[in-house]
Design a protein around this nucleic acid. Structure first.
Lengths: 204, 204, 204, 204
DNA sequence: GATGAATGAGCTTTCATTCAT
DNA sequence: CATGAATGAAAGCTCATTCAT
């Protein structure tokens, strides 16, 4: 029992470290974020970090991958519900664009990894694998939608899913903090769905 | 005369430093790139860098902004030629996507800046300003195309130009080095133009 | 308790660093003294210095001002005892000249600052302020002594106190390490008091 | 003949370098003065300095010793004129205090050397030797004055000359740039002569 | 003889990591 | 377990000095 309480405390603290790491790594980059600052911001001392993560790099990996998995899981769950492909995709786009502000940091972290593949080769691979799971699923749903006449059959599903992921990342990258207050925000969101080339009557 | 020769030599070397800096900063990020390595890679010693750029940060700024300006200039020139808006935009997309591999590093640098706005606030602003010039021009051409019936009139030009820039950056970011060897590369390129919602008869 | 022990240890080490800094800065000057040498001489590694003083310059300031304050405090205390002005001044001169060898380095540091006012403007000001407190006090005591007929009334107290401080510093500067072994040392000390122009009968 | 012209040019330039070196070394200290700045300030390039002085240290030695010798020569000449000892000393004090502002930098240089004997041992020795010549001469004149009843016979000439040199240096050190505008300046100058303990009737 | 670009050793400062308490 | 002082390698930057032009 006592064991469990300790276990919980440890997990709780680990989570706090990870949260703060995500914020700081995203804001300032890997090298410019010090383990001491992460520690200070959550009210522990510098040594404590290393009781939970053996190295700074390990912490970074966790800060990149763990939130990514959470996000993926949520999105994949949405795509496996019992609705028409077009509806599934529309929901996914809505969901991802509406909540984009709540995981800006996580996205930015992923992007910073992709931007430095040579420096983080292993991590990059894991990120790409994770993205691949996502695009594969979208591809699959999209193909089904095409066969049902919901999407323009002239486009390759592989390309479409790639396009969407690229667009999503590009939007998050080029628009800033206040991304959702951009005057064209609503139109941009609609255009994300337009990318899938929905056949008219089913879009409405 | 002697003066000119020296001046040329200096410019030549400055260019070499900048080229190498672009590569290394893009590959490894600002902090993880040492000025000593840049020097070593071009066959000079560490002190030489600082004869051309007073600080590492100055070098970084130059490495980000100077190539960006070159690229912008080329693109803007293309958009001001004497052709129909649709043709201009199509050419621009073709050009940018075809040459994307030749300035992957430059793009990546820009992206790394945008990903760390807090750390490089001034530089970020300059990059955003530079991008704005680009989107404004595209917007302008696009609006003209709409009035000529070349593009779907239902979309906001501001949104469209933003979308395209986001897409371009997203593609460069999520696809790797061998971006152009991706099996969907050609389709992706076509989809970039599709983003502009060209009216059918002119797309073919 | 544990807290107190740590606190004490820190203060102890801070003091050791400062002591060594005083010696080395005085012997070799600010620029020619490396923080690494200070560290090495007290048996710690280079980084440790910066746990106690954020920059080399901060350390220098502390090395100049803290001992100066100690010395001043002692001298001021002497001048506020319950004796005749002439006795107070005589004691002060005795004290300062007798102990001059024990704070040669501290004096030399102060002198090196005064010699480079442009380079250390803020520090210079603080040193001058500190000296002013000293001369003001001497002036005050001297004036009282004049009114009691202990000193020649023909001299301006402000000039006299300045003269003494100048003389003290000049002696420390032009005589070397073995200042107190100089054959004229005792006579010189007597002449320091002579500077105050004591009226004969009270000098003996 | 052409030879001579070149020779003159060289000497002229050497002098310019030395002058600038005196100013900068005095203001900022040895280490903090760069050879490049000296060069720049007199309108030549960095390499030129080393055509006239093999190393920075050589230049420093020259900047300290050459002006010191000039000053000494002048003072010694004054002390060897055909007047009474008291008049000679009075003239010397007048002269040195009146012109103190014109060789503040030279004095400061000397003082900075004396403050760092360990760092410049050889140079220190030469400075001390130079000072010794001065004090010896003063001593000699003073002794003669004592035997003529011009000075209080109770003081050791060696001590008196030391005192005066110490006082002179101390005044220059503790008073700043605008030394001669100090409200007590005239009194201070008078006190410098008082140091020699002149017998009353000859002081006026 | 003057130039000024290149050199490279040396400096201050940072920071991930360790470990005695 | 948490602490936080100590470590020491590594980085950016400076600058006296050299030398080809």
């Amino acid at each position: 029992m006592a064991r469990t309480v300790n276990e919980e405390k440890r997990l709780e603290r680990r989570k706090r470290i990870l949260e703060e790491a995500v914020v700081l790594f995203a804001e300032s980059g890997y090298s410019n974020t010090t383990t001491a600052l992460i520690a200070k911001n959550i009210g522990v001392t510098s040594g404590t970090i290393f009781q939970y993560f053996p190295t700074k790099e390990t912490l970074f990996h966790a800060a990149v991958l763990e939130p990514l998995e959470d996000i993926q899981k949520k999105s994949l769950a949405m795509l496996q519900q019992d609705e028409s492909p077009a509806a599934l995709i529309k929901n996914m786009v809505e969901e991802q664009f509406n909540h984009i502000y709540s995981y800006t940091n996580e996205l930015r972290l992923v992007q910073s990894v992709l931007g430095q593949r040579i420096r983080f080769p292993e991590l990059t691979q894991q990120v790409l694998d994770s993205i691949k799971v996502m695009t594969d699923t979208i591809e699959c749903v999209y193909a089904k939608g095409q066969s049902l006449g919901e999407f323009n059959p002239g486009f390759s599903p592989a390309m479409i899913s790639r396009s969407y992921i690229s667009f999503l990342n590009g939007v998050a990258l080029t628009l800033g903090e206040d991304i959702v207050h951009h005057p064209e925000w609503e139109n941009l969101k609609a255009h994300a769905y337009y990318l899938f080339a929905p056949v008219q009557h089913s879009t409405n």
